[in-house]
Design a protein around this nucleic acid. Sequence first.
DNA 1: GCTTGAACCTCACGTTACGTCATGTTGCAC
DNA 2: GTGCAACATGACGTAACGTGAGGTTCAAGC
Lengths: 237, 237
Amino acid sequence: MLGRYLKIGELASLAGVTVRTLRHYDQLGLLRPARITESGHRLYDIQSVAQLYSILAMKELGLSLSEILELTTAKDVDVLALLEMHRARLQEEMARRQVLMAKLLKVKQALEEHGQPSLEDFREVLTAIHASADRYLSREQFEQLKERYVANAGSDLASGWLTFIGKLRNCYEQRLPKTHPDAMECVAYWKAVADRFVGDHPELRKAVWSFHASRERGRLNYGLTDELYQYLRQLME
Amino acid sequence: MLGRYLKIGELASLAGVTVRTLRHYDQLGLLRPARITESGHRLYDIQSVAQLYSILAMKELGLSLSEILELTTAKDVDVLALLEMHRARLQEEMARRQVLMAKLLKVKQALEEHGQPSLEDFREVLTAIHASADRYLSREQFEQLKERYVANAGSDLASGWLTFIGKLRNCYEQRLPKTHPDAMECVAYWKAVADRFVGDHPELRKAVWSFHASRERGRLNYGLTDELYQYLRQLME
DNA sequence: GCTTGAACCTCACGTTACGTCATGTTGCAC
DNA sequence: GTGCAACATGACGTAACGTGAGGTTCAAGC
């Protein structure tokens, strides 16, 4: 009952997809509802919305649903990286569309003046259409994407960050004590992150702590605000 | 043997589609080869290339193959109108992509600063994605397209123009006499066009002829050049 | 003139990402 | 309490090809 849930129809109309699509994604394990009522109705939360964005964006990038599944089940998606990639792709598409438009204009002029454009004109347009309609990523681009999503070679750390922040914020807002399971989960996550950084070496760990302690205030810190950070330290005492 | 024919593989690689696709279009009656060899191999000419462009462009406009079939079998396509529409669509898409990019940027900033974008941010992005991915024409747009393609309420005149010009040019280049079937076809077409304009009224027809005779030299005349026009008049004597 | 591999042919079934019923339960506004 | 919209689960349909299987045809090189 924490916050508000969306019913399937609500999420669907919010995102401009059909109810059937959401059920389909659920079936594939691509977008599981955050909760399910006793009567079996699917309920989604804001995390689901973010996930749905990821799915749709990746679809736009030309990935098939099974590829998306492959990437997302490895672990949560790095939405930030995805946003950047999505933006880059859009820019790329716009450039290709510009090219195509220029060629179209050329053909149009040829048509108006000579009655029949040359084969070469058409050839150019056709290949430009092909390029412009092509939604697929090159092998490299795909690998790059995978790299970023399955960061740290198979750990579920880096990409779970947003989930972590969300949970931590939740705990903080309810002032949950360190004994609460959710709080403990956050601490565990945080420790795992630290371990990733420093291994098991106790001195290094200390160094990391002090590094974190001295980080700039109010700057880009990917959601770990000062209050949250203070709260986290309390939990860990 | 007039000019060169393309084999299916050649056209395919020219246009960046697969051989299978071309066979599929043939099967649907969407793009019939210009000729077929004795052994059954498909041969395409430059007209086919133009037709293929029309098909691909209409696909880009979001039409299904059966819709395209419906439009193109009504009669040949007005490539010029299509080019214009295609261009307009590309421009529209670019505008929507701009919007989407702006929203992505907003979400990205929210993410970097607060760790979690608001539901509203996501909602905006999702609907923008939806708009941007949407390739469908509105009912009006479709009707408009149909209007232009099946011009003159079901006659095969206006849109057959390009075919006519192509044939006429062919006849002209071979200096075919007015007794040749192809030449006669051209004359018939031309008469039909004239009839469309003036009905059966002989005086009006005369007026049209003199109008055509006095038209500007070397200007936009959609392929009917002066030589062609002179030739045509010869045929009609 | 003969080979041989690439390019072509025709079935015919497979695939992806849902659409579209059919048939039955739930939620909730009046 | 009753109706009707919104939800549920099958299960089959569809569009635009992909992907073989199995068989000809073409053209280049010997």
